[in-house]
Structure formats: structure tokens, C-alpha cells
Amino acid sequence: MFRNNYDNDSVTYSPTGRLFQVEYALEAIKQGSAAVGLVSKKDVVLVALKRNAEELGSYQKKLIKVDDHMGIALAGLAPDARVLSNFLRKQAMNSKMIFNRPLLTSKAVYSIADKAQENTQSYGSRPYGVGLLVAGYDESGAHLYEFQPSGSVLEYFGAAIGARSQAARTYLERNLETIRETESPEELIVHGLNALRDTLPQDVELTYRNTSVSIVGKETKYTIYDDEDVQQWLDKLDSVSNARNRDDDDDDDENADNEQQDNQQDQQQEGGDSNNNEDRMETDE
């Protein structure tokens, strides 16, 4: 098998200037189940699909509260996310202690980005293996950021990370205008769940057990809905299974392509646009 010499640590550039270890860390995100975030003028919603390792086991937590005005969704290595969320909580408490003001979402997310960057530049440590969606409502309004182990941070109106998240992004792109104009928090959550539903594998449905919902906004402190509390939101959906699995003649080519790959392997599905992705992480966007 071809052996790549340039991918053993994060202090070695490939001849084309790439950092493979960092790119592999980004792959770790895709091993995790999907999380979706979206913003209207007043609210931010995070929804996520939970997994359980075995039938009798509990589901892995996907949403973590940071402060009354901020929360995160994770995809990838959950323990890494806990380290980062603990750090975020500390930052948030510091801001309250020192300035008596809620931590700005941008400050929060850049603080972990800078922390993550250090792990991409020294031998003997690995980059974090988790992607985060950070949602916050602060004095400059509602914000959603995507954090990556490369140390890159981008602000989005809608974002999705984790397995088969491309499908959710497609949904968000198509419905961007309505999402932006949405006044009601309920509608925003429904849009979030619709997007999440599109990432489902063939034989899985959204249930109150495997779905987490959270919202933060002008009038709402960061609230997580889990277990039975999720049912009220699922009841608002027209269906809890993936549209593409319900209806085979999807008119959209891009989607159809995705579907095929989906059914083959989660990994490869996103491999399709992975070049794209790597480019964007590693360079300038």
C-alpha cells in the first residue's frame, strides 16, 4: 500500500503545503453523527442526532450548555468537546466575574480556535478531533459559528457538521431566505429538524430518543430539549424519516448523487466534496 510520509504528525507539511494530520482530524468530525445549526434574526437553533453504542446503552450527549446565552453542538470525539466546553464555560464565567457582561459569542469561539491552533503546530500533541457549532445570543444579536480542529472559525446563517451533513446543508441553502425571515422560534426548530432529517440513513427515523433540540434567543435562555420533551417538536414534522428514502424519484441531481453515496458509505459521501473542504479549512476562507 502506498505510504504517505507526510501524514504522521502535525509538524510536517506535504510538498504542496498541506497538513495531513489536521485534515485527518477534520475527518474525525465526519465519523460523528450530524448536528445542525441555524439562525433567524432573533434566535439560534441547534439540533443533533444522537447515537447509542448498543441497544441497552445510553445515547451520547450532543448538545452542551455553556452559559444562559450560549451553547454548543458537537460532532466527532465527545471527550475533546468536553475539554473545549469546559474551557468555554470558564471563559464565560470569567467574563461575568470581571466585566459583569455575558461573553461575546465571537470572543468565545475565537478563544477555543486559538487553543486548537496550538495543537496543529507542535510535535507530540494531536489536533482536537471534534467540530463544534457554537450558538449564542449576545448584545450584537444572534450568532452561529462553526469551529474546526484546524483552528478555523466561520460565522454562518446555517451550518451542519458530522455524518452526511451535506444533505442538511443542501436543505439549509434551499431554505435560507425563509429561515432568515422566520419570526417564530418554533418554525426555526422545525426547519432545523427538517435539515437533520435529511441526514438520516435509510433505516433510521427521528425519535425523541435519538434527537436533541436546543434554542437560544432574544427572549429565550439557552434551553436543551431531550428525551420526552423532544416529542412536541417531532409532532410538528410532516415525517420523521428521510425524504429521499420515502420518495425515490428525487428531482435534484446533486441530491440523488448524495443518496447513492450515502447508501454505500458515510465516509465516501463526504469524500466527494472533501477536496473542497480541505481547501477551505487549510487556506483562507
Binding site: 486559538d114 491552533q117 483552528g151 478555523s152 446563517f157 446555517g158 446543508r169 487549510e282 483562507d284
Partner: peptide, 30 residues
């Protein structure tokens, strides 16, 4: 889906010092 005018790439170092970088963005922040 990116928020326009957000995600700034030019940074401020001091009151009258600015910085623009090209390459790995996270390194630029460092």
C-alpha cells in the same frame, strides 16, 4: 450560508497597526 461581512481576515494589532495575512488562517491569528 456564510454571513456576509463577517469572518474578517484583516486584523488589528495596535491602535494604528493593521495586519492582513494569506495562508493558514489559524496561523495568522496566532
Amino acid at each position: 450560508l456564510l454571513v456576509p461581512d463577517s469572518n474578517r481576515r484583516i486584523q488589528t494589532i495596535d491602535r494604528s497597526v493593521g495586519m492582513a495575512s494569506s495562508g493558514l488562517l489559524a496561523d495568522g491569528r496566532q
